[in-house]
Structure formats: structure tokens, C-alpha cells
Simulated assay, not measured.
Amino acid sequence: MEGVMAGWTTVVQADILSVALERPDLVIVDCRFSLIDPNLGEQSWRRSHIPGAAYAHLERDLSDMSRKGEGRHPWPDAETFCAKLTRWGIAPSSQVVAYDDADGAYAARLWFLLRTLGHEKVAVLDGGWTRWTSLGLPVSSLPREPASQRYVASFDASRLLDADAVEAHLAAGGMLVDARAAARFRGEEEPLDKVAGHVPGAVNRPYANNMADGRFKSPMQLADEYRALLAGRDPSEVVAMCGSGVTACHNLLAMERAGLRGAKLFTGSWSGWLADQRRPVATGA
């Protein structure tokens, strides 16, 4: 059992989590969300969730929607976010597991929020709610009763870049990796933001490429793919982006699963880049 009880820091398999549900330091967070219907995830959680799971809403809990000019899902401030962690019963020593019912991107947002607070023991449930339920593992509709222990921490600001910092990063020869689908990157379609295209100098790595059959590719396969993409660069030279700073976290998680730690996030991402209409836009591959 000791092997099961060790810290999970990237992804955890459903069968392994299922035998650790009584683990005293475990806090599970349900991150199901729909951009089309922002209330759907929480409604689904109220009906049924992994036993003991708290609920994190992308826009209410994992973003600060009051911030203007910082993209569609602005990064929250640390004090407010830590208050949410306290409410969910998460302590600095907690083993956190996040899941959603998509492909792990919303859960990965929580993963990277915690990672940039310096929280190591946080993982995403591989295959999420879909795999959990397909295996017939236990579910509950009961609310969680969290223990109260105040969480106090600050974000590692060196891993969080705004648009101006990204411009400087690119000017210095740094790498910017866009996690959006290829058609959005090329500017052929744009369902969410006001202008189609990408940041000049960015390269495309759709976050869906991290998955195979609904689960993360193996660490070895991800390492091969990301090393080819990085072409000799150190992971710390990489900044991840997407449409609003959410699915980019999936690439950051995949890189860490591959043993490539230290990449950064463009928090506002494409929607934050577009906040200043003077910034250049590129289209095509």
C-alpha cells in the first residue's frame, strides 16, 4: 500500500485513486465545466461525483472574471484563490486530485494554479469522470464536509507572463507554444475570440495531441514528442498559451509528465493578446 500512498504529482489512474478514497490527506476536486452552459458542471456535480469531491467552477473559482484586459479567464490573485483552497479543505500537505468530464483541461488549470503556489502533491485523474464511471467505481451525491486549515501561499510570478512579457520573451528568442486546435491557430476559424490567428512567432502543439483514447500518452511518448518540439531548448525557455490560459495548462501538465519541468504560462493567452488592438496577428501555419 505504501506505493499507492506516495505523492501523485502529474496524473493518477482511476483504479489507484479508488483504493485510496479513505486516505486522510486526500482532497478530490471536481472541475467539470462547459463554456456553452457555465452552470452545467456544478449541476452535474450536485447530482453525482466521486465520493468526497469538492467543486471548482472555472469562472468563479479558477479565474478572476473582474479583471479587464487580461483575457477571457484572468488569473486569480493568490489570496482569493487560497481562500477557496481553505474552503475546499485543501492544506499545503494535502494530496489533491482534480478531474473533469472533458479531456483534463479544466482539471489541469487547477493543477497549474496549485503548482505555481508551490504545491507538489496535485494530480489530474487520467480519463476523468468518463473513465471513473465506465469502470463502475463509486459515486456519491453527498456534499463534502472539509476540515478547516488556512492555506497561505503566493504564486511564483516568474512562471506567469502577461502580453508585454511574452513580447519580450519572443524578442529574446524564447519559445511560445499555442495549445489551440490547428485550424484556430492558422486563423481559419475562431469560435470564441474577436480575431482569428496567432501570436507571430508562436508554434502550434494542440493539447489534444497529449491524449490517446481519452487518456494521457505515456511519459516516454510525451517526452519524445516534446523534445522534438523543443529541439534542444530547456523547458524553462518555453511559454505555453491557448485561447484564455486554460488548455495551455494541459500542455504544461503533459510536459511535466514527460519530465520536462519549468515551462511558463501566458495567462491571458490569445484573448489577452487581443486586448490591445495594436498587437500584430499572424495567420497560416
Rank of each mutant, 00 (worst) to 15 (best):
A181G: 15
S154R: 14
R257A: 08
L58D: 05
A83V: 08
G118V: 13
L265A: 07
P200F: 10
P143S: 01
E237T: 13
A285G: 15
F81E: 04
T247I: 13
R205V: 08
D234M: 08
D126R: 01
A20W: 05
V19L: 13
S269V: 11
Q95S: 07
H198A: 15
S244N: 07
L170C: 02
G69F: 12
Q43R: 13
T9D: 04
D126A: 13
P146M: 06
E225V: 08
G284K: 06
P191D: 10
A163C: 09
D101W: 02
Q221C: 10
A168P: 05
P38L: 03
A258G: 10
D164V: 13
A165P: 01
G201R: 01
R184C: 05
P146Q: 04
D224V: 14
H73E: 04
S63Y: 06
G89A: 04
A53K: 01
K84E: 07
R186P: 10
D178M: 12
S236W: 02
D37G: 09
V96P: 04
T133W: 03
A171R: 15
V152S: 05
R233Q: 12
E120L: 12
E225Q: 13
A172D: 15
G197N: 03
S271G: 09
G197E: 03
E2H: 14
A208Y: 05
V12T: 00
V199S: 04
E225N: 12
D101T: 08
C31Q: 00
R87H: 09
P76S: 09
L137N: 06
I36V: 14
L113N: 03
V166K: 02
A202Q: 11
G232M: 05
L125P: 01
A107Q: 05
R109F: 08
P92N: 09
S134G: 10
D37L: 08
E145Y: 10
G259K: 11
L62P: 04
R144P: 12
G245M: 02
I16G: 03
